[in-house]
Design a protein around this nucleic acid. Sequence first.
DNA 1: TCTACTGTTTGCAACGATAGCAAAGTTGCG
DNA 2: CGCAACTTTGCTATCGTTGCAAACAGTAGA
Lengths: 339, 339
Amino acid sequence: MPATLRDVAEYAQVSMRTVSNVVSGYTHVSERMRKHVLQAIDELGYRPNPVARTLRTGRTGMLAFVVPEIDVPYFSALARDVIDAAAEVGYRVMIDQTGHDHDHERDLLTGNDRTMLFDGILFSPLVTKAELLEMNSPTQMPLVLLGEHEFDGRYDHVAIDNVRAAYDAVRHLLDTGRTRVAAIGAQPLEEYATPQQRTVGYELALREVGIEPEQRYARPAAHYSRADGYGAAVELLALDVRPDAIFCFSDLLAMGAMRAVFDAGLSVPQDVAIIGIDNIEEGRFSRPSLSTISLDTSFIAEQAIARVTARIETPDLRPRQIVAPHTLRIRESTASIER
Amino acid sequence: MPATLRDVAEYAQVSMRTVSNVVSGYTHVSERMRKHVLQAIDELGYRPNPVARTLRTGRTGMLAFVVPEIDVPYFSALARDVIDAAAEVGYRVMIDQTGHDHDHERDLLTGNDRTMLFDGILFSPLVTKAELLEMNSPTQMPLVLLGEHEFDGRYDHVAIDNVRAAYDAVRHLLDTGRTRVAAIGAQPLEEYATPQQRTVGYELALREVGIEPEQRYARPAAHYSRADGYGAAVELLALDVRPDAIFCFSDLLAMGAMRAVFDAGLSVPQDVAIIGIDNIEEGRFSRPSLSTISLDTSFIAEQAIARVTARIETPDLRPRQIVAPHTLRIRESTASIER
DNA sequence: TCTACTGTTTGCAACGATAGCAAAGTTGCG
DNA sequence: CGCAACTTTGCTATCGTTGCAAACAGTAGA
């Protein structure tokens, strides 16, 4: 049974209020009293109960970082930056994995769950646009969306310019002399904004050099996993006119695609160039190393934290859309080939 | 301002007590009344405040999964299984990254921090043995250690047999005809149990076939990262008598080591065989694919959850040490070579 | 010496939900 | 009609902490 504030007060022969003042660093406490109380605290091994404190103050000092799958390298890398950025401003971050579970996401947003344990939420959404719109309203929990951009201004967002990022990637492939550029990661459902936008960028770059996008070169991928990348690439390589480059919507897809190329007895980048998006560390050590679009995750994290903390202080801020920078990282997987 | 129990009671014209009975599924409530109250709850959008409930009942329904770095694939994969296993028994899991920060770990264990927000902790520790022993005592928070085994029976553990796992890995290298087997991952500080035990297994396997372990073939690694694996492998390859196999204490080290071998103009497995531990997905898609010791993470997760929930119910259980199975996964990186 | 003021300390209530208890009201059954 | 079982209620206490305002002490100025 841990010691409470009351125990300390009785033990030190002072009022609970004074003990509380000492604990929370209230200014008007004499040095003598402070010492006295601190000693009592120490002797009883007292620790403030954060639950009680939260009930009273309404603040938990914790943020939730919600992702579909924490074992996706991009998310875990981002999580790390988010945790660091939050620590800078005195918040702790708990990671919550929704696991492609719409119900779980809905619970979070509707406050069905333990949401009130957090002061704010950073959310990398999976659910559809329309659904999201109505959800957060009942709780009014400060919320910042990461990675999605196409919601109509009702929430704060931090994300890259997906159209531009895809354009830059494909443009790079074209610049190295490839002409049959395939894509992996398109989504049939139009509720998912990110793949939509990346598809737009992909087609834009192709058309700009006079190439009409071909339907059969655009393969869907359900989960942005290595396995999906592998499977999609196998299909692409089986086409009668094989692509000479593949733009993958994520590095993980690209890792799978690379392996599929090798298993087909072909070579990256000689036969097929490959580029991804995310700049995960795995791609720097792979063979060949993976060209990619690098997202500035620490920028994203810092902006998101700044935004959510601002909204905690001032709930009625106007929502802002923040665009994070991205840069092309050219590595071995898209090396130019002389013919 | 969210609705409270009192609001619901007033709105439905019933007592708070009755509302509480409905919410918590008390038996003696008529069907009519239940419907009536539920409707009021729905109309007001009432959600029980988990903080208040926790303060009253002492239960949060949440577990903390504490890891040094969430962006280490092994940890994020384990996190996933832990979350699933916990969901099975009605608990939610929050991931807490300590980031090699001893203070943070200490805070958690001493209850300095927000520990009381959780009913129990699953802990993949970083701190030294001696420190750990004293820490948890003040809080008595149910605690299960993952991945470490050498603490003297004061806590529940779930971990593989590290000596045996290392032995199996090295034995496999020897079986494929390699004789100069190096290791990456030893730790100079003896407080870290896992590397110690893996070193023991490594040396055991060597001696068993009459090879005396050489100091220069055992390289330390501070962080079990790709970069550390790369650096250590570069050093090994620069030796006048180059090793023909490398046993890495983690798959991540192995990925770095593989890249170092290629950068030195050599080949895996022809010139140097490489094996790791963890069986991360990355190693199934890498080129060559990585032989490894596979840990049964879902077993680890299930056992850990079973243990911590049991301890939540019955705090005075005798600590148990649970050994998780491991299996050798032979892939391309240790293929036999004919000479 | 008395007032004014700053600085310290305290008592009470409240945060929102739960639990125990006893009593009051309702219904069913013989 | 009376008794028992079932429902519903009001009241009060509790979890541990902090906000508010008042009370108290001590010192300086008039």
